[in-house]
Design a protein around this nucleic acid. Structure first.
Length: 120
DNA sequence: GCAATGACGCTCT
DNA sequence: CAGAGCGCCATTG
């Protein structure tokens, strides 16, 4: 196993910056973040970089989900639950299977409507 | 420098 | 629509 990944990585900084750009109440897939970070096809490194995120990091890592809009089970116990809790806290709704509707909460895939308590 | 791992993505069944 | 398998690239030891 690659043991514990180290934070000092040039590409990581770009990934973190991109994740920080994800608007509240919306989620982005690793691929989206990777592409926006200038690393097309390196979705894996995005997740890998987030995995190396320090506990003090202010990066909204919880807004990053897989391309299916589902929170993948991580090794950290309770961490996945925390992500779901944080997302719901921002207004992101989950499907019965714990799946997010990227058509509405997707960072760029949606960009439209949003569960506005007002108007519908 | 080589080999293995990995918060993923896409295609096929 | 859901589940499983293979591939891609970078980082680690």
């Amino acid at each position: 196993m690659p043991a514990r990944p180290r934070p000092p990585s040039p590409a990581y900084a770009k990934i973190y910056a991109t994740v920080r750009r994800i608007p509240r109440g919306r989620v982005a897939s690793y691929g989206e973040v990777a592409r926006a970070a200038g690393l097309p096809g390196r979705a894996r490194q995005v997740g890998y970089a987030l995995f190396a995120l320090p506990d003090d990091s202010t990066v909204p890592w919880h807004r990053v989900v897989d391309a299916a809009g589902r929170v993948k089970p991580r090794v950290t116990p309770g961490a996945d639950r925390l992500q779901v809790a944080l997302l719901e806290r921002e207004g992101v709704a989950f499907d019965a299977r714990g799946r997010i509707d990227l058509a509405r909460f997707g960072w760029r895939t949606g960009g439209r409507s949003r569960v506005r308590g007002r108007g519908a």
